[in-house]
Design a binder for these strands. Structure first.
Lengths: 179, 179
DNA sequence: GGAAGCATGTAAAGTGTTACATGATTTT
DNA sequence: AAAATCATGTAACACTTTACATGCTTCC
């Protein structure tokens, strides 16, 4: 973030909220101590630049920081599966619910994916579309990924919901048919 | 896991490695203390059942634990975006690399997705296919999701790679990948 | 004058990873 | 006899979240 001109802890957090939040979020309580530590370790250099009476500390990448960023992006190691999805975890355990309620769980997950997909198309993508004009093309690529992903996910869950509903006995009617 | 007949800390960890690992992993150092805490809080009940001279402690869900599991599965709250993906994060910042190396990053991410997709089809799905015979259908659903997801992801990244390669000026020294 | 936004942090608690440490039983 | 698997845990560290705490500046 520093590399692309974002300078203060506050604005790093804001930039994350507008961009990477969907695959990597953060908080003020993480950003400020981390900047302090990166400064101690020489990856960034800070400077006090108050705005009037309001304190403000700007940071820039040092050469060491630039090399570390570069090394991270080039690193062949792609983390195994550093990836958590509580929705999928619930789905995995859905046998603990009566069939009707399991379908309900799938419906909630689908609604959530649909909403995320909408949010990407309407909120995130338009924001990201200004980035290429400033020489940054990959933020838009990542936003497109998010939009496409949640659209795909909503479709997958809709298909599952249909399958599950077809295999359920009608509510209120008698015996269940074989599936 | 306890609910479906898995009894010891060791086998919970093993079950996670064979199933939910792709959207929620764990470790022994997390499982054992957590079981102890859940027992103190009354969600599970433990019992010493050594096998010969080898110590062994089995656990079962209490009624309170069963209710908590049920409550979690029914909870309308689906966590905003509890979801992290270091690969996507790298992609977002790929403007920090020369174009050729950015394409390389995309290629590595694609290879990783392809490998994960293969691993799902060949390792995880066959394992999950035995679950329905024991009355558990959703583990297979989750495994199908994983398989479909990584296949989708590999395709998306392949498409991106193609686009990026088309937009690159051709390099005389040509380290072009054919795959 | 009030609301929204800019700006910085600490404290406490909760969560998760890696390394260390041990030993029995079963399979090859 | 060795390797794999079963089995349990601790210690140290790293990471993350939520709540707390403060105050300035700009816009309406």
């Amino acid at each position: 973030m520093l590399r692309s001109g974002v300078q203060t802890g506050y604005s790093i957090k804001r930039a994350v909220d507008r961009s990477t939040r969907f695959f990597w979020a953060t908080s003020f309580a993480q950003v400020y101590p981390e900047l302090a530590q990166l400064e101690r370790q020489g990856y960034v250099a800070g400077r006090d630049e108050p705005r009037g009476a309001r304190p403000r500390k700007t940071y820039r990448l040092t050469e060491k920081g630039r090399r570390a960023l570069d090394g991270w992006l080039r690193s062949p190691r792609v983390p195994g599966f550093e990836f958590r999805d509580e929705g999928l975890l619930r789905l995995f355990f859905a046998d603990a619910l009566p069939p009707d309620d399991a379908v309900d769980l799938v419906r909630r997950l689908r609604e959530h994916a649909t909403e995320a997909s909408r949010s990407f198309r309407e909120d995130i993508l338009p924001l990201a579309e200004s980035a290429p004009q400033h020489g940054y093309r990959f933020p838009l690529v990542a936003a497109r990924w998010g939009s496409d992903y949640y659209t795909w996910r909503a479709g997958w869950l809709a298909q599952l919901q249909t399958e599950l509903e077809a295999s359920l006995p009608r509510r209120g009617s008698g015996r269940r048919q074989t599936d």
